[in-house]
């Protein structure tokens, strides 16, 4: 096509036949750019919004995290308490065991006492038997002596 003079003058017509300083292409591209920019701005806005939400969320999370942190702390304390309880229990058990031991010891003592009483009784009986045995031995000796004498005299 032939060179448009107007174009040389830097004037151009667009499709709507309006006079334009800019070349239609450029104009078109500008519009495009403009629109793209608008898009971009929109998107950035959206992004910002999202990021804001995110931050908010993160903040919230942070808060939550803080909270959780606090919570964890309590749990720990609790756990510690629990531990202590355990210890206490063990101590108590130990005391109990010790008491039990003591009572067993006492029981044993009582048993021992009883047995000792029984032993003393048996000992007395033994002593009686010993005396009886000795007396019988003496009788035997006397009888033997008597028999010897008897035989001798005969």
């Amino acid at each position: 096509m032939a060179k448009d003079p107007l174009a040389e003058a830097g004037l151009h017509y667009d499709e709507l036949n309006k006079l334009r300083i800019l070349e239609p292409d450029v104009g078109q591209k500008t519009t495009e750019l403009k629109e793209e920019c608008k898009d971009f701005v929109d998107k950035i806005g959206q992004f910002q919004k999202i990021v804001g939400g995110l931050i908010e969320m993160v903040d919230e999370l942070a808060k939550e995290a803080e909270k959780e942190k606090m919570k964890v702390c309590t749990v720990n304390t609790f756990k510690m308490t629990l531990n202590r309880c355990d210890m206490l229990l063990i101590i108590l058990q130990a005391i109990g065991a010790r008491n039990l031991l003591k009572s067993v010891a006492k029981q044993r003592e009582a048993q021992q006492q009883q047995l000792q009483a029984l032993i003393a009784e048996k000992k007395m009986q033994l002593e009686r038997y010993r005396i009886e045995y000795e007396a019988l031995c003496k009788v035997e000796a006397e009888q033997n002596e008597f028999i010897d004498q008897f035989i001798l005299q005969k």
Partner: peptide, 14 residues
Amino acid sequence: RRADGSLVYSLVSP
């Protein structure tokens, strides 16, 4: 029988 309960024997000439 002794006072403590034990038995004691004694021989007398026959």
